[in-house]
């Protein structure tokens, strides 16, 4: 039994059009999974269902053997947190300190302990000097880092990033991904919902959603060797992969170029 078990999950807002159809997914502790899909593939709906914000019509989601229901949602949200797309719309506190504290306040953590945790986790995401700052003075990337600190302070094991970098500039995006890499190395399970294949490259495992179903699921290198999967699910391959695929094996010089390209992408 894996740490996260999604079984035959189906969801529909109206009861007519199914947004998610029979999704089954097992995720181990410490994994980094990218859930990839174009607009309308149901990936954000899946993310919301996984933290209990939406109630599935069918199927179950279980964390560590505990099935997510209205009664268990409170306890499960201690284990799993979510960072949303819009940095502004998830910043609850008046200051950075207040925002990191928000989740802990809900968990009834004593004040003294909260202050220690805020110190520790704000340091970890590089926001310690900004504790008294108001959100309107922060950049999008800084706000997302505060959101991560707030979730970590709740002692979560799993963080879902629901297009968390899509509203950031390229530098802030790379920065945030570096933080996520660090977290993953420390054992946090990362589920990254994205439509950006370059971002999905950081994951070890890709789950491709198409029209509410899992189109393919597997190790990224095995999937990259089948470009038709990406074409069929309206996703663009990274430029380097496209180039590599386009080059012909027959010419030796090109072979060298191709090898070099494969080398360079496996280093990213």
């Amino acid at each position: 039994m894996s740490y996260i078990e999604v079984k035959d999950l189906s969801f529909s807002y109206t009861g007519k059009r199914m947004i998610l159809k029979d999704i089954s997914l097992s995720i181990e502790k410490g994994e980094w999974v990218a859930i990839l899909g174009h607009n309308g593939s149901g990936k954000s709906t899946l993310a919301k269902a996984m933290v209990g914000l939406l109630e599935p019509n069918q199927g179950t989601i279980a964390y560590d053997g505990v099935v997510l229901t209205n009664d268990t949602a409170y306890d499960i949200r201690k284990k799993v947190g979510i960072v949303f797309q819009n940095p502004d719309n998830q910043f609850v506190g008046v200051t950075v300190r207040d925002d990191i504290a928000f989740g802990m306040e809900n968990l009834m953590v004593p004040q003294k302990q909260m202050l220690e945790m805020i110190d520790f986790y704000s340091e970890k995401v590089g926001m310690k000097d900004f504790l008294d700052k108001e959100p309107s003075t922060l950049s999008g990337g800084q706000k997302q880092r505060v959101a991560i600190a707030g979730i970590l302070a709740m002692q979560t094991q799993v963080i879902i990033f629901d297009e968390a970098t899509s509203m950031l500039d390229p530098y802030a995006r790379r920065d945030l991904i570096e933080y996520i890499q660090k977290l993953n190395q420390e054992g946090i399970t990362v589920i990254m919902i994205t439509h950006d294949i370059n971002e999905a490259m950081y994951a070890n495992r890709l789950v491709i959603l198409k029209d509410g179903t899992i189109f393919s699921d597997g190790d990224k290198w095995s999937l990259f060797k089948q470009p038709e999967i990406f074409e069929n699910s309206h996703l663009e391959l990274p430029f380097s992969l496209k180039l590599a695929a386009a080059l012909d094996d027959s010419l030796p010089e090109e072979k060298a170029v191709k090898d070099f390209l494969w080398q360079s992408i496996s280093n990213t």
Partner: peptide, 24 residues
Amino acid sequence: KRSEDLADAMESRNFVPGKPRTRI
């Protein structure tokens, strides 16, 4: 739209209206 997002964010961080909370 913002308030919808914010409600989601608050709920996902275990905010339950009327439930006692500690204060920073």
